[in-house]
Amino acid sequence: MNLMNSSFFAVIKSAFGSEVWAIITPAIVDTVYMTVLTMVFTLVLGLILGIVLLVTAEEGVHPLPLFNKVIGAVVNVLRSLPSMILIILTLPLSRMVIGKAYGPGACIFALVVSCVPMFARLVENSIMEVPKGKIEAAKAMGTPNFQLIIKVLIPEALPSLIRSFTIAVIAIISVTALAGSFGAGGLGDVAVRFGYSRFKTDILIAAVVVLVIIVQLVQFIGDSLSKYIIKKRFLI
């Protein structure tokens, strides 16, 4: 159903009808599956990579300038490639590991490779906001670097880290939609196949509505969590 053969209201009504949702529901499951899995990988790997970048920087707590430059360059290269290209580039990798280059599982590689460097940079930014005095105070107590990271840097930057992660999750959702057009399935795939190629505007609208709701939900959870922590510390 589209606007050329039906009225606007009919399209909207159909967008919330059971026929459309029979197509949309499995797509939601795929999108959520891809997003959650990528989220977990991005959180762990991005956090580690971000901290490594920060700690080994010239003014970091354990400077390793050469190592830092190499890692930084790799991150920059990955960040400069559009997600679309990364998806194509990592398809052979998925084929090697998973055995197929289509379906929600196969695109996880692409999603992780494109989102981890971004989140790492966000982590770097968040932790850099920790006042230098606090780090010095911890150092002056003789705190070992590992504890400095675990006990001071991460907890201190936590509200900011949560906001950064929220941004990353929303970016992940938008990349899953893109991956949809490369055989990953999910809401992006449905929107393109039905909404764009077959002029099924009602399905397109339903996909958009679901995406908007998911993103709003993620943002709300991220904001609330961050605010809760700030409140707990009496910072506002």
């Binding site: 010095e136 105070a137 150092k139 002056a140 003789g142 201190e156 936590l158 510390r233």
Partner: peptide, 20 residues
């Protein structure tokens, strides 16, 4: 340094307590 700093206490102008 870690060991040495444990024996040298330092207090700063801006307190630098950990707010969390």
């Amino acid at each position: 340094w870690q060991n040495t700093r444990q024996q040298i206490g330092m207090v700063f102008q801006n307190y630098d307590l950990f707010p969390h």
